[in-house]
Amino acid sequence: MKQEHTQHRSKRYGMVIDLDKCTGCGACMVACFSENNVPFKKDETDKRLSITWMKVYRIDNGRDFPNNQVCYIPRPCQHCAGQHEGHSPCVSVCPATATDYSRETGIVSQIYTRCFGCRYCMGACPYHARYFNWWDPVWPEGMEKYLSPNVSPRMRGVVEKCSFCFHRYQLARDKAYANRRKDVKEADYQTACTQACPAGAITFGDLNNPGHAVHQIVKPNDHVVKNKAGISIIGKSQNPNVFRMLERLGTNTKVYYLSSREWVRKAGDNYIADEKPEDMFAEQKKH
């Protein structure tokens, strides 16, 4: 493992979602369903039981007609790094090592055959990004024909979640290997939601690679900063319009959001009334 680190620069795959451009159309959700063999039931209106690796939330500014404003927030797995790389909330509670943090890519994996369904990870995840299979998936007769061989369908009793389309990374790596390249090209590894988004609102790539669009938009801070509560914030964006969901928890997610509207950015990190962004890092300023 250590040798690998010295040989390749490690990657931190992540995305930034432009909430100004996102229209809440749901194409990312369906692109994900069809790419990842996500099951469906006859009734999907109980959203607690509806498996959606990518889910579009709708929030509003809480004001009455006609001053109401709306924003849509697509939520894949946030692929948290935690307080130090690998200390994701879910990874640290999994007793079966069914979910793990890849130091090579920064992707949080889910290995279905190892999972025995204790659902600790679901309790630990602050983003509700994990779903439990309460039933075996059932495809109506004939419909299992469209299932992709790249992703195994899950069985009853296991937890599943967004994998940043890891199989696409594997295919891209194979391609790079076949072409005698060391690195996976930016265009060769894009998630299904990124590719499908008709608004072009999602940008995906390696946050560690200054050549990648996602790095250029997010401008992650190379230095770890501590917030008021003493929690380490890794990769804090230096773009004033970019934020992460519940950033103050120190989950250090790799999904960033971009919005020009202040109320949206505040809602994203659960600000209490009158709190300003700089308050969170007051201590940092003193140093």
């Binding site: 159309c25 749901g26 194409a27 959700m29 369906v30 692109a31 369903f33 069809s34 109506p140 007769e141 004939g142 419909m143 024909k145 469209y146 590719q195 499908a196 988004c197 008709p198 608004a199 072009g200």
Partner: peptide, 17 residues
Amino acid sequence: GGVCLLGLSGLQLLYGP
């Protein structure tokens, strides 16, 4: 390159009940 959610679901129409 963009596509909408209905187009993405086309295979469910093809193989559907």
